[in-house]
Amino acid sequence: MSSPSSRETVLGRVRRALADVPRTERPEDVPVPRDYLRVHGDRDPRETARLLAENLADYRARVHHCVPSALPETIARLLARQGSRSVVVPAGLPDSWLPAGVERVHDSAELPSHALDAVGSVVTGCAVAVAETGTLVLDASRDQGRRRITLVPDHHLCVVRVPEQVVGSVPQALERLDPARPQTWISGPSATSDIELNRVEGVHGPRTLDVILVSEEGFLL
């Protein structure tokens, strides 16, 4: 803890600096115009899902579609393509999603980071996906697990339930999220533009991001 005096020093300086603000003014008396849009464009759920797919792909995520029953085989195919023999699994992920013959590494607080580094892939669900920005939000729910499991392995496979988990815009996403939960917003794979502003994918996070959009038969993208 810092000395109580530093706290009082800083707060005292703030109050003196604001001597021009009338004492009777309350924070909400300062107007904040909010005439920006809640969402950009008028889309039905199918169009919103299509935009999500487009924007995910634009930032170099690999996007796949399937119906719920085809999920295990889709996941199996993508793990095989990556050549992963082991997968980190959050506690709440349905076991039926994963193919037999793949080693499951269970997410736990005790799992050392080094062990995580040796795992090929991680499979998770998500909390919400944002179409306009191509963003997946993880909030550490049971099907997503601890934040680090989607960070250390080199391949992240994320399942999005369409249309229920998809929103159009950033404002709509924040409405659905609880700030008390730790969140990771993911828009494409890890990237840097630090060298001559050339975009290079995959610095410290997963270099490959597979997104599976799962929807019922008939909700054709």
Binding site: T133, A180, S187
Partner: peptide
């Protein structure tokens, strides 16, 4: 970018 690759929030 429309959104940067990673945003972390913690409470």
């Amino acid at each position: 970018e429309r959104m940067n690759p990673y945003t972390s929030t913690w409470t």
